[in-house]
Design a protein around this nucleic acid. Structure first.
Length: 488
DNA sequence: CGCATGATGCCTACGCATCATGCGGTGCAGTAGT
């Protein structure tokens, strides 16, 4: 295809969306896809990533296949497109009733936008149908999931590589994410079988997010700190915690202080999760206490504060989570509460469900002796997830290499946690040090930089007015402090 | 693994030490059964 000139793209943008101009970063991505290049676009959340995958198909014709990590995300995007008048759009996933599913499958070629999950995509009977389509291009939305989830949680993310390979001559692939870590980008290029890909990387620094590191001795201290902070200052904000129980517990303590807050984690019913998310978006809830289940695809521009109740297991995850603050450009704050024991817990959670090399060898041996995979997994005491992971690696690498792969995976995770410990325990500009873990340096030092360089919270956070706390809450406060063994 | 919580042991009433147990994230798909 010939290189498209700027005027054509602007006219296309105007015709499809009504906008007069692209936002920063969008145009070159759109052009790269239209010109047939494999493309990786790392854009900060809220930069208008969806336009990057939605526009090119209008110039190219055919169907665009969008692989998305979450059903809720697909549903949101389908609804959004339909609201904008697009009728040729569908999501092929397990939300569909059998009849609806057959209807979608029977009409695949009629859609302009087709959303699906990696799990659905790699199933032979589905992938055969999709292969017959005239695909304009293929999109991996939130493509860091390949790196973050593919290796030890959702192996079908990695199977996309084989699927793409089976296409022979294939359309361009577009990967979209906000995560700029070297490993994420390498994994994306690798597992999406990219060739001579164009890279558009927006640096991960967010100058409007001040960064604060607070070292503490115990969980009680953290609890005290959070209760104090949130009764003094307003959100909206997210508190990231490490366990579902802690999410519930903190939410309850804050609720007793008349703060509009709810917990969010994967143990909750789907309906409750949707409700909480909606209420946070509309402002009915001011704070969310969440595990890492919360955040992807959350489109709330005015989040002012992200608090971490513990050390996250990687810099990529940390940057991803704090990046949800201040999309409107407004000054925001990211606080990391750290105690020495955080790393052990993070390591346990990261490594607990990861199969041991001996287990991989055991499963490999069982299978070679003709045992059913499920039976072998039961005997080894593996979870369903772990068994799927082992099965993927055994199938791809064979027993010995799969066992080594598990060791390397564990070592990689330990290394990431260790580098976060060094970050949390070290001194010097916090912004510079976290960015350095990605190989970046801040372009400028913002006025409100970090707790090492200095920032003034009361210049940008709103104080909670006394009116909020006036109605008989002191009694509660004393009771809570009593329960916690806090105030004198 | 390491921490929090609850149970037990001491030995006779309470509080402390010690031991045992539980807990700890992320989602898809597809099926059984309400």
């Amino acid at each position: 295809m010939n290189e498209m000139i700027q005027q054509d793209l602007t006219a296309l943008l105007k015709r499809v969306t009504g906008f007069d101009a692209f936002r920063e970063g969008q145009e070159e991505v759109v052009r790269s896809v239209i010109n047939g290049h494999d493309t990786i676009a790392v854009l900060p959340t809220g930069a208008g990533k969806s336009l990057c995958y939605q526009l090119p198909v209008h110039a190219m014709g055919g169907t665009v296949l969008i692989v998305s990590p979450l059903l809720s995300l697909m549903e949101d995007q389908v609804a959004q497109l339909k609201m904008n008048g697009e009728k040729r759009v569908a999501a092929l996933n397990s939300f569909l009733a059998p009849k609806e599913r057959s209807a979608v499958l029977a009409n695949l070629g009629k859609y302009r936008y087709l959303f699906t999950s990696p799990e659905m995509l790699v199933q032979p009977h589905i992938s055969d149908r999709i292969k017959q389509l005239e695909l304009a291009y293929i999109v991996a939305d939130e493509a860091h999931c390949i790196s973050q989830w593919g290796f030890d949680f959702r192996p079908d993310y990695l199977r996309m590589r084989e699927w793409l390979g089976s296409l022979g001559e294939r359309p361009p692939v577009l990967a979209l994410t906000a995560t700029a870590s070297e490993k994420a980008i390498q994994d994306i290029a690798d597992y999406l079988l990219m060739k001579q890909q164009k890279l558009f990387i927006h640096p991960p620094d967010r100058p409007n997010i001040a960064m604060e590191l607070v070292r503490q001795e115990s969980r009680e201290e953290k609890t005290k700190w959070i209760l104090n902070a949130l009764t003094g200052w307003k959100g909206p904000g997210i508190i990231y915690v490490q366990s579902r129980k802690r999410a519930e517990e903190l939410a309850e303590l804050l609720r007793l202080r008349n703060i509009r807050v709810a917990a969010f984690h994967a143990g909750m019913e789907g309906e409750d999760r949707i409700l909480v998310q909606q209420q946070f978006l509309t402002g009915e809830l001011e704070w969310i206490c969440a595990t890492n289940a919360f955040g992807m695809g959350i489109n709330k521009p005015d989040i002012r504060w992200i608090i971490h109740d513990q050390l996250p297991p990687s810099a990529a995850q940390y940057i991803q989570e704090i990046g949800r603050a201040g999309r409107d450009g407004g000054q925001s704050l990211a606080t990391l509460l750290y105690t020495e024991t955080d790393a052990d817990k993070a390591a346990f959670i990261a490594l607990d469900d990861l199969p041991e090399p001996e287990t991989v060898r055991f499963i490999g041996k069982c299978i070679s002796e003709g045992m059913e995979l499920k039976e072998a997994g039961d005997r080894a005491g593996l979870s369903d997830t772990a068994l799927r992971v082992v099965s993927y690696w055994l199938g791809r690498l064979g027993t010995d290499k799969a066992a080594i792969q598990m060791e390397e995976l564990a070592a990689g995770k330990r290394k990431e946690i260790f580098s976060m410990v060094r970050f949390a325990e070290g001194g010097g500009c916090i912004r510079s040090r976290i960015l350095a873990l990605f190989g970046y340096a801040p372009a400028t030092r913002p006025v409100h930089c970090c707790s090492d360089c200095g920032f003034v919270a009361d210049q940008f956070l709103s104080a909670r007015t006394t009116v909020d706390n006036a109605s008989g809450l002191l009694g509660w406060k004393e009771r809570i402090d009593g329960l916690l063994g806090v105030g004198e």
